[in-house]
């Protein structure tokens, strides 16, 4: 994993490797898919096991489950309004999946599936399709008025409408790029500084002392990455709710 042949291999960690032997190779079941399954399993376990007791005074696990639930519920209600209750399961699933993907990726030997743009783009397309369908179902043809703000002069329509359409189409792209870029940048930085530790550590007698410097940086970076993991999951969820708000209320 570290510096093979004294080079910095920062991108090798994102390579997909089939797991589960021949079966995995033939159906393309990679470590990324395995980590997604693990994340889903952990989320289900957290919710099922955490809420199994239904104690009035929650234990630790139940407190975690309840706080994530209430957090996402608050997000939905504050952003979307009362209609937000309907979208709570979707936003909750999305938030937990992204959060667990980000956090699992920080464990040693684990793989970050949110660092692949295919994954984040697929999640963002789900949001995009949902907001478009919701807006079409709720508002019908009035949805297309979204692309032309009322009050604008009509002769500007040939400019405004394409720009608004492109802006609307850029939503899933910006949503996916933001998450993907944050995760890739963080993990590349971690890997680069980790390689520095190994390279500097082998530098004779003074090596181990100099190697403490990148080690310090890496310790700080891990803490920062935990913050980013939470923050990006939050940003993904809040942008989803903001888009849903636009789709439901359609200004």
């Amino acid at each position: 994993m570290a510096a093979e042949g004294k080079t910095i291999d920062a991108l090798g960690q994102f390579e997909l490797v089939p797991v589960l032997g021949k079966v995995g190779a033939s159906v393309g079941f990679t470590q990324s898919s395995a980590h997604m399954l693990l994340a889903v399993g952990l989320i289900v376990a957290l919710v099922m096991y955490g809420m199994a007791k239904r104690a009035i005074v929650p234990g630790r696990l139940q407190a975690v489950t309840e706080s994530t639930y209430e957090f996402v519920q608050g997000l939905c209600q504050n952003q979307i309004g009362d209609e937000g209750k309907k979208f709570f399961p979707f936003v909750f699933a999305l938030f937990m999946f992204v959060l667990f993907g980000n956090l699992l990726g920080l464990l040693p030997f684990a793989f970050t599936f949110t660092s692949h743009i295919v994954v984040t783009f697929a999640l963002a397309m789900m949001v995009f399709v949902l907001i478009t369908v919701v807006a079409l179902v709720l508002h019908g043809r009035k949805f297309f008025g979204y692309f032309f703000p009322e009050g604008a002069p009509i002769w500007l329509a040939p400019i405004i409408i394409p720009v608004e359409i492109v802006s609307y189409l850029s939503r899933p792209i910006s949503l996916s790029i933001r998450l993907f870029a944050n995760m890739v940048a963080g993990h590349v930085m971690l890997k680069v500084f980790a390689t520095f530790i190994v390279l500097l550590g082998g530098l004779g007698a003074v090596g181990p002392f100099i190697a403490v410097l990148p080690l310090t940086v890496n310790v700080a970076l891990v803490g920062f990455e935990i913050l980013v993991a939470f923050l990006q999951a939050y940003v993904f969820a809040i942008l989803t709710t903001i888009y849903l708000h636009d789709a439901v209320h359609l200004h």
Partner: peptide
């Protein structure tokens, strides 16, 4: 935002 709008 700028890059994704350009890509779109």
């Amino acid at each position: 935002e700028v890059v994704s709008a350009l890509i779109a």
